[in-house]
Design a protein around this nucleic acid. Structure first.
Lengths: 124, 124
DNA sequence: AAACTGTACTAATTGAAATAGTACACTTGT
DNA sequence: ACAAGTGTACTATTTCAATTAGTACAGTTT
């Protein structure tokens, strides 16, 4: 379900956080559904349980999941958190736009690239 | 001229590489002009000369600068390299678009964000 | 010759990330 | 009550990339 790149410079912990946010945004993880336990997911992804714990902790801090001692971790249905994810996505995207501009890409070029990638999504 | 973030997880070496590419794209560094020497820039940015050397080496490998033993390092006017920088910028931007889409942003929203940031640039 | 360039090493240091291991508190089902 | 599952909280250790430190060599310019 989550694809890890162990060689990447992006910490595994962050990859897991992003992966779960992504799965939720895509609707694959339904609100309120239960996530694999810390130990289970650690086995599944072949990483240390501490790494999963850290990832779940970050997600909980951001209101994206909700962990209950003794019961498990669940996908939160906090709409404020969903909005926060959207806001962060926008902010990240704007950063990318700024970087692309600095390297010489124009507004028209950027707009065209966005449209082109839409066609790719539609084609799928 | 180059702004470094020493706390960033992005290696200083990479920041310097990106900074020079950026300055060249913005036209601040003219083609053929001389760059600060390895030791000079190291002093200026308060980093180790080796770090500058590494950055210059990467830039040279990519045809963006040209270093001559005993003379100095110069901004290259290799058009192929400039195209390569543009291509890379496009690829990076497309990645950012894909990530934003995964987090729930639509094509219309992305297009709007690009337009908005254009206004910001114009206003400046 | 002196003073500047880039280049090429090795060694040491630093810091973040991940692992290993253990322990504790809580819930559920038997 | 008990066992087996949950999340949580630590400390110690390991690993690895990035950076620093130091030195040396080769070329150019004056």
């Amino acid at each position: 379900m989550i694809q890890l790149d162990y060689k990447s410079s992006v910490p595994i912990c962050d990859q897991i956080v992003n992966g779960i946010i992504r799965l939720k945004a895509l609707g694959i993880l339904k609100n309120g559904s239960q996530l694999p336990s810390v130990r289970q997911l650690a086995m599944q992804l072949s990483v240390n349980p501490n790494t999963i714990q850290k990832a779940y902790g970050i997600l909980e801090t951001n209101g994206i999941v909700c962990s209950v001692k003794g019961k498990g971790s669940f996908v939160s249905d906090d709409t404020a958190a969903e909005q926060a994810v959207l806001d962060r996505a926008k902010a990240n995207f704007l950063e990318a736009v700024a970087k692309a501009r600095e390297l010489g890409l124009t507004t028209d070029q950027l707009t065209e690239l966005v449209q082109q990638s839409k066609e790719g999504v539609d084609a799928k």
